[in-house]
């Protein structure tokens, strides 16, 4: 079991390394992609400077906290898209019958599939996240906490993408549902939770768990709280588990189904 996990990780890392090597063949494009993503995120600072010129507190956040919120959102999203790019297009992979090549390998189909490519611009997101942390005030504890929260949040983001994409096993084309869901996560993640009320707030901590991937990490970073930390980690485990079970159930259906998903 342990060696199996080790071997699986080795293959995933090798995929990432090879993907990175491919992207680096054109150095100019590579650096441009990364830099522009950093600038992209930075451009929204203007928005917040304007908003904070109107009011000192927005949704209970100070300006610095908003920067931290952006930092966490960016590195969470960046980690997810850099390491698991294919999780966000899993619907296409299913519909084009491209799972077959993973099915004949003696590895976990889902992991092999979603780690098979990287997204370069996501490196810019990750870097931006740490730049924001630097501005917010960096300490060793902060750094570790920030990294840990980005990874656990990123895994939730990936899990949700997998769950939504896996709907394709049942309903054929689900890419627009998955895209919409992923967009929902990103948009909410970049605004302070205090501006939302009522049902929206409940949704943000359940169905659209931005609250767990981004808001709680900001709270934890502002003032460490073991309860919130446990909620984040437990949710992460829960979403990963759910993603695997739904994907695997779909995969069984894919194999045994008499619906023609791929071409004969």
């Amino acid at each position: 079991m342990l060696t199996a996990v080790k071997n699986q990780i080795k293959v995933a890392l090798l995929s990432t390394k090879y993907g990175l090597m491919r992207e680096m063949t054109n150095k100019v494009t590579f650096i441009m992609d990364v830099t522009f993503m950093i600038l992209n995120n930075a451009s929204f600072i203007i928005q917040w400077i304007i908003l904070y010129s109107l009011k000192d507190d927005i949704g209970g956040y100070t300006f610095k906290q908003v920067l931290l919120l952006w930092g966490i959102a960016a590195s969470t999203y960046g980690f997810a898209h850099f390491s698991f790019k294919k999780a966000f297009s899993i619907s296409d992979t299913i519909n084009n019958g491209k799972l077959d090549s993973y099915l004949v390998q003696p590895k976990n189909v889902l992991i092999s599939c979603i780690t098979s490519d990287i997204q370069v611009s996501a490196i810019g997101d990750i870097l931006y996240g740490y730049i924001m942390l630097l501005i917010y005030g960096i300490t060793i504890q902060n750094f570790i906490l920030f990294s840990l929260l980005s990874i656990s949040g990123g895994l939730i983001v990936v899990s949700i993408a997998v769950i939504l994409g896996s709907l394709s096993f049942w309903i054929g084309k689900s890419d627009s549902i998955a895209d919409t869901g992923n967009d929902l996560m990103v948009k909410f993640a970049t605004y302070p939770d205090g501006i939302f009320k009522g049902i929206t707030k409940i949704l943000l901590f359940t169905l659209i768990p931005v609250g767990i991937t981004t808001y709680m990490p900001v709270w934890i970073m502002t003032e460490f709280n073991i309860t919130y930390m446990s909620i984040v980690l437990a949710s992460s485990a829960f979403f990963i588990f759910t993603a695997f079970s739904i994907f695997n159930r779909g995969l069984k259906r894919y194999s045994s189904s008499n619906l023609m998903i791929s071409k004969i």
Binding site: N7, V11, L14, S15, Y18, M21, R22, Q105, P106
Partner: peptide
């Protein structure tokens, strides 16, 4: 973008 040699190494890892 990789050589057959590197590809073979990748498959050995799999």
């Amino acid at each position: 973008h990789l050589t057959p040699y590197d590809n073979f190494k990748f498959f050995s890892a799999i």
